[in-house]
Amino acid sequence: MLLNVSYKNFKVTERINNEVGKPFNLWDRLRLKGTGSPRLLITSASLHIRNLLLLDNSPNNCNIELRPKGIIIRFRSLLETYALIIPYYKLSLYKGNSTEYSIHRDHYFIKVESKTNEIHEFMRKILKKRSDSSSHLFDS
């Protein structure tokens, strides 16, 4: 789901927390060695996201936040901040060529450029968290 998160709205915050969980606490963030990605350059996006990005002339950057049950991709357009909320069970992550990742949820997608090793490590962290969360579904 794509949401405008520019303003503090408790209903939007509650929807995000229900979808991907509350933010990690300080101890978990230290244990995970960070829950936020470096700045990522958006190379391509789905139609709805691309239309938002075309509204201004600034570089199209985003960042990714890890949550217990998913990820949040945040980007800015004009003076607004938007978030693409992706729970792990709807997340599809593809590595295109050696410098590009494609992140999908339903009919939304964002392709980001990955020129540093930090980005590759962060994407591996996302895949590990996704596999850990799916393994908990089968524990009973």
Rank of each mutant, 00 (worst) to 15 (best):
1 M>N: 06
2 L>D: 06
2 L>N: 01
4 N>Q: 06
5 V>W: 11
9 N>R: 09
10 F>M: 11
10 F>L: 13
11 K>D: 12
13 T>Y: 10
14 E>A: 12
14 E>K: 14
23 P>H: 06
23 P>I: 01
29 R>L: 02
30 L>W: 12
31 R>D: 05
32 L>K: 08
32 L>I: 03
36 G>D: 12
36 G>L: 13
38 P>L: 14
39 R>T: 11
39 R>K: 12
42 I>F: 09
43 T>V: 10
44 S>A: 12
44 S>G: 09
45 A>Y: 04
45 A>L: 05
46 S>I: 03
47 L>C: 08
49 I>H: 07
50 R>S: 09
52 L>Q: 08
53 L>Q: 07
57 N>Y: 15
57 N>S: 15
57 N>V: 10
58 S>Q: 12
59 P>K: 13
62 C>W: 00
64 I>G: 00
65 E>C: 01
67 R>A: 06
68 P>C: 04
69 K>G: 03
70 G>F: 00
71 I>R: 04
73 I>R: 01
75 F>H: 07
78 L>H: 09
79 L>K: 14
87 P>T: 00
87 P>G: 01
89 Y>Q: 07
89 Y>N: 13
89 Y>T: 10
92 S>L: 14
95 K>P: 00
95 K>G: 02
96 G>T: 10
96 G>E: 14
98 S>G: 08
102 S>N: 08
102 S>C: 10
103 I>D: 06
103 I>P: 02
105 R>V: 09
107 H>N: 12
109 F>E: 02
110 I>W: 04
114 S>H: 05
114 S>N: 08
116 T>W: 11
118 E>T: 04
118 E>C: 04
119 I>G: 04
119 I>W: 05
122 F>S: 06
123 M>G: 07
123 M>F: 05
125 K>I: 03
126 I>D: 02
129 K>H: 07
130 R>I: 08
133 S>I: 10
134 S>C: 11
138 F>D: 09
139 D>G: 13
140 S>Q: 15
